[in-house]
Design a binder for these strands. Structure first.
Length: 204
DNA sequence: ACATTAACGATGA
DNA sequence: TCATCGTTAATGT
């Protein structure tokens, strides 16, 4: 039933996936590429709320509440996304206990993610904040399909971590010197996920 | 101090 | 040819 009612879409880099204030008609999953949730103001400034790598799902909150979407959704990289209609989502929620469990875990993880973000922004120095922002993207619990490399520009890491691109560049080079990351053009490879997670945590 | 913006050239796809 | 990256200088808090 899910497969018959859902559809997939190829998205170009920079394409809008969904817009703020529109009805939340779909629960959306990322199969490949990278998508971000962000809010843009009239003057073009933006606040990136979260990056969603392969294996990630989002929008369940607004679908459950049947409310307008709270953020804009854009493809950072060329991506393949799955769109599950709201009605299908609700039907699954009522008929499948395993699905309900999945959604609860999803909401719980998302809550933990945002709590950690606030904590990180107030307690950690910039290098550690960058490390934690990246570690979130590579979280195997939330995003089981994400490998150890991700195509993302340093500019986007900056928007995600709330730090300027120039400062991100320094932080990433520091992490590369520690052999935690390997950097290449528009791509970040995690060499040591454990140390990436641990980086900065001793400060707390 | 330390981050940000602005600007520049170099380099990759 | 355009996006991305590495760096520096000026500016702000």
């Amino acid at each position: 039933m899910v497969l018959s009612s859902a559809h997939a879409e190829h998205l170009e880099a920079g394409a809008w996936v969904a817009r703020r204030q529109e009805p939340s008609n779909y629960w959306i999953g990322v199969h490949s590429g990278l998508i971000k949730l962000a809010i843009y103001n009239a003057s073009g400034r933006s606040c990136t709320l979260s990056g969603v790598p392969p294996g990630g799902w989002f929008g369940e909150g607004s679908v459950i509440k049947r409310e307008l979407r709270k953020y804009d959704v854009a493809a950072i990289q060329p991506s393949l996304a799955m769109f599950v209609p709201s009605d299908t989502f609700h039907a699954l929620l009522e008929s499948s206990l395993p699905f309900t469990g999945f959604v609860i875990r999803q909401l719980n993880n998302r809550m933990g993610e945002f709590i950690a973000s606030i904590q990180n922004s107030r307690l950690l120095d910039v290098d550690a904040r960058v490390a934690q922002s990246l570690a979130q993207l590579f979280n195997p619990d939330l995003y089981p399909d994400t490998g150890r490399t991700l195509a993302i520009s340093q500019e986007e890491v900056g928007l995600l971590a709330g730090v300027s691109r120039q400062r991100i560049n320094q932080a990433l080079q520091n992490l590369e010197k520690l052999r935690i990351l390997r950097l290449s053009y528009n791509q970040i490879e995690v060499l040591d996920l454990e140390r990436l997670y641990a980086f900065g945590r001793e400060q707390i």
